[in-house]
């Protein structure tokens, strides 16, 4: 039989590649006993925000979902996009490991299973200047991608703007905005190099995408096929996390060739300033996420040797 999987990402993107690996691996490991039909580019008409219900209702069997859109159902999904709590892929993995039981529980309660999750590259500042001092942030008009980013950047003295992704490039071309908070990869895909000259590596966050499956659909499969799916998920997960480390330098080289300056060093004062700006957001999240959230954050602190 066939399983339908939806993903709003294109084949060449980090998430699209990972989805393809997963789909291919399922077919390979189950010796074509079960095939995953992958619908990329949101070609089924589903966006990340639809996926939880779509999988629950059996519209599709498997979905690739941006974590942040699930925050309206459970605040735990804002964890991976909290500002400046991870410094890179390694800490992001530690955070994921600490939170995984909570994620699994959420999907279980919704009649689903968590297959795997993988991160985006670290988000940073795309601009026409290095954003490496506190002053350079002042009044800087940038597009942010979620509520946390907006609040953090306001607190930091910048002027965040909310725009849909399709409007970002026209606004950059006409000078409607001066910059974008997104990953190096996100900017490279949308050809920001035609409009912007600098990417400042600030490691704002490494948001996660989740692949989840309808539990009834999973349990209706024979044991060996279930095993194939679990194994394929593990392979895709490792590949996804490895890509988050390996791809960074590759993208930097590519961007360098396109004339983008990568700014890796920022003033320590800026770091402190941004961490201060993020504090309210993190505290608010703690309030919302309650005991479960506090537990995860504490476990993460233990793992990386910091206090949360």
């Amino acid at each position: 039989g066939g399983l339908n999987m939806t993903s709003e990402y294109e084949l060449n993107s980090l998430m699209g590649k990972s989805d393809q690996i997963f789909a291919d691996k399922v077919g390979e490991l189950s010796k074509s006993g079960v095939e995953v039909t992958l619908h990329l580019n949101g070609s089924l008409g589903l966006k990340s925000a639809d996926n939880l219900d779509a999988v629950s209702d059996g519209v599709v069997d498997i979905a690739d979902t941006l974590g942040g859109v699930l925050a309206g159902s459970d605040p735990i999904f804002l964890l991976s996009s909290l500002p400046f709590i991870v410094s890179g892929p390694k800490e992001a993995r530690a955070l994921y490991d600490a939170a995984r039981p909570a994620y699994e529980e959420f999907f279980r309660q919704n009649g689903q299973i968590l297959l795997y999750a993988s991160p985006w590259l670290p988000s940073g500042f795309w601009a026409n200047k290095p954003i490496d001092t506190v002053e350079s942030l002042n009044g800087w008009k940038l597009r942010t991608y979620d509520a946390n980013g907006t609040r953090t950047m306001i607190a930091a003295g910048a002027s965040p703007i909310q725009l849909s992704w399709a409007d970002v490039v026209p606004q950059l071309a006409t000078g409607g905005i001066d910059g974008v908070l997104t990953s190096s990869e996100g900017g490279a895909t949308a050809k920001f190099d035609e409009h912007l000259s600098h990417f400042t590596e600030i490691n704002y966050a490494l948001p996660l995408n989740f692949r989840h499956m309808n539990a009834a659909a999973f349990e209706s499969l024979p044991e060996d096929q279930q095993k194939a799916i679990r194994e394929a998920a593990a392979v895709a997960e490792e590949a996804g996390w490895a890509a988050a480390t390996d791809l960074v330098e590759k993208i930097y080289t590519q961007l360098g060739g396109a004339g983008v300056t990568i700014v890796r060093e920022v003033q320590p004062e800026l770091r402190t300033h941004l961490n201060d700006a993020a504090k309210t957001v993190i505290e608010d999240w703690r309030g919302k996420a309650g005991e479960a959230g506090a537990k995860v954050l504490h476990a993460y602190g233990e793992a990386v040797g910091r206090q949360y």
């Binding site: 294109e10 060449n12 580019n41 992704w165 399709a166 490039v169 026209p170 071309a173 895909t189 949308a190 050809k191 035609e194």
Partner: peptide, 12 residues
């Protein structure tokens, strides 16, 4: 805009 984003062709 949609084509540009999918095909990674400059929208401008």
């Amino acid at each position: 805009i949609i084509y540009g984003l999918l095909a990674q062709v400059s929208i401008i």
